[in-house]
Design a protein around this nucleic acid. Sequence first.
RNA 1: CGGAGCGUAGCUCAGCUUGGCUAGAGCGCUGCGUUCGGGACGCAGAGGUCGGAGGUUCAAAUCCUCUCGCUCCGACCA
Length: 569
Amino acid sequence: MKWSKAFIPTTREDPADAEIRSHKLMVRAGLISKLASGAYTYLPLGYRALRKIEQIIREEMDAAGAQELHMPVIQPADLWARTGRLKAYGPVLMHFNDRHGRDVVLGPTHEEVITSLVANNVGSYKRLPLNLYQIQTKFRDEYRPRFGVLRTREFLMKDAYSFHISIDDLKTTYQKMYEAYCRIFDRCGLEYIIVEAESGPIGGESSHEFMVPTEVGEDSLVRCSCGYAANLERATAAPIDVRPAESLDEIQQVHTPGATTIKQLTELLSVSAEKCIKTLILMGDGEPLIALLRADHELNEAKLARAAGLENIEMADAETIEKLTGAAVGFSGPVGLEGVRIIADQAVSVMSNAVTGANKTDYHITGVSPGRDFALPIIADIRLAQQGDHCVKCGGQLQFSQGIEIGHVFQLGTKYSDALGANVQDEQGNTKPLIMGCYGIGLNRIMAAAIETCSDKDGVVWPMGIAPFQVVIVQLSDSSQVVETAKQLYKDLEARGCEVLWDDRQVRPGVKFKDADLIGIPLRITVGEKALAQGKIELKRRTEKQPRLLEPTDAVEAVVQLVESQTRS
RNA sequence: CGGAGCGUAGCUCAGCUUGGCUAGAGCGCUGCGUUCGGGACGCAGAGGUCGGAGGUUCAAAUCCUCUCGCUCCGACCA
């Protein structure tokens, strides 16, 4: 491609509405352009990169035994109602009414469609396992699109769905997908980690997320040097040890007017939050429930729900709290509360001489020791891991960072097949629900994550595997010798299968160098009078400072080799 | 949906507090000339519903009301 004919609108300045590095660079390098909040055009350069990502995914999915198909974006809302997800997704689903007034949704994902497809066409275990995938635009009316292309209302996703007669068979495919994902992300040149994950409202039991650690990701990661890794929702910290025995104080009531927050309480009484018990009152399936946490810890609702055996949990309103405790919000405590389920975090169970609410407005009590002053019927891990916690596997310090989720694999089970009646007959002729797995990859996020992690002060530094072009030829002048040499290199490299961008523009050298760095093509050939006087041209990697001088024919060989060695995983 | 901020040239912004002449700068763009190995310079130019609607006023980019859009924080999220 000749640069003079290409549509690559680079800019010198950062866009005003971009906050994070990848977003700024994607706009400056002419990869994307925003149409509206959460809706971006992929410009030719950006689209080339996106298509390369797509092709890597396609090749690896095919190699792993999955088959590509293409499903509709528009889906009857009725189908969504049957799995309960019309309600579960709520306003995130984009709807419209067609000319007959039928409620239609734009697919945010395709479990319903694929499950009904397979239900209608597969009746026997003999056709299983089956693994089908598509690469398609998905629609979600996000509460808040953000971070450039990281969270948008319209995005490209690869979603695969597998169908099985047995859990063992599902696990085999799950493992294959897991390995295929590793190859895909390796080929994309990403540094990623794999974490245990909550499966979320999609349902299912086992799940792993593929994350690229960055400073700006939306997800929080917890890691240990021993290899333990989980996302924050799932992460478990090592239990807190029992403190050395001290003499147990007697309970005393203290006047704490207006101290409704932990901060106010600790300042008023000059105690650390570690000595206070936070009493959270929640509603689970219509019943009140009390969660006790050390005051410097945060509740993990998913863990609490699991410990309590409940589906949905939400914070109780002020009225419920006042009725239950007889005190205003902010003065609740476990001592003396009757007839309500109490679940204590493990860290609370090892406390003594603690401070907590007195169930009397404007009063707290001190000298509280769990076990002595109130019962601990259920002790569980119901908190978020936090800075300073230790690894549950090896006892080492847990490390916290942010990350971008680029892929997610789930073992779904029979949630959708049950809801949609997707059954097959097994060997004995019994009717069995299909056991499912599903596997997603966010293509746009791969691109953003790659740029977020691969860039320097001058611009993007594309990994070879997903670079829009593999090599850029910078032609420094219009002298016939320079032009002819550049042209010959261009022809030779293209003939060898390289993706070449030839900067033949009538602009000053400085502009060409700056632009080449900004758009981040991995290899750069410079053709200029100086080196050409010795019959040489310059070859440089984007990551290097100094070029090497080579004969043009040697340069072609060198480029071909570099491309090959860096494209392989 | 709650909180905060921002909408002025293609892009990045100044001007608004304290209303007043023809609405400015830099970058980019067009033409001519000089330059030509890391975003050159000179001259000449094109380019604006000051987000939109309504109001106050002799007079509104500037003040008031409403509205739309965008960004960030929160809530939410395969």
